[in-house]
């Protein structure tokens, strides 16, 4: 059975730009974005979100309740 597919979604307006998630990602999918969000922070963005392996490392590092969501294929 092939491994399940995962996807990472970052709510840019909920990010405070602390950047804890960037080194936490084993696939290096997260990087600093280009825009300032409604809170006034430079939010991170997910590059190639479909390459996520669903480890949850970035989610656990993130201090915000819902800035990062990781979806799993059913």
């Amino acid at each position: 059975m092939p491994a399940k597919k995962h996807r990472i979604a970052i709510a840019a307006d909920e990010c405070k730009g602390c950047r804890r998630c960037i080194p936490a990602c084993p696939k290096k999918l997260i990087s600093v974005g280009n825009e300032i969000n409604i809170q006034g922070y430079v939010a991170v963005k997910a590059d190639n979100p479909e390459e996520c392996i669903g480890c949850g490392s970035c989610f656990h590092q993130c201090p915000e309740p819902g800035a990062i969501t990781i979806y799993e294929e059913e």
């Binding site: 597919k5 995962h6 996807r7 669903g54 949850g56 989610f59 656990h60 819902g66 990062i68 969501t69 990781i70 979806y71 799993e72 294929e73 059913e74």
Partner: peptide
């Protein structure tokens, strides 16, 4: 891909 939340 369906949307089952694993971490959220």
């Amino acid at each position: 891909m369906s949307d089952k939340v694993k971490f959220g």
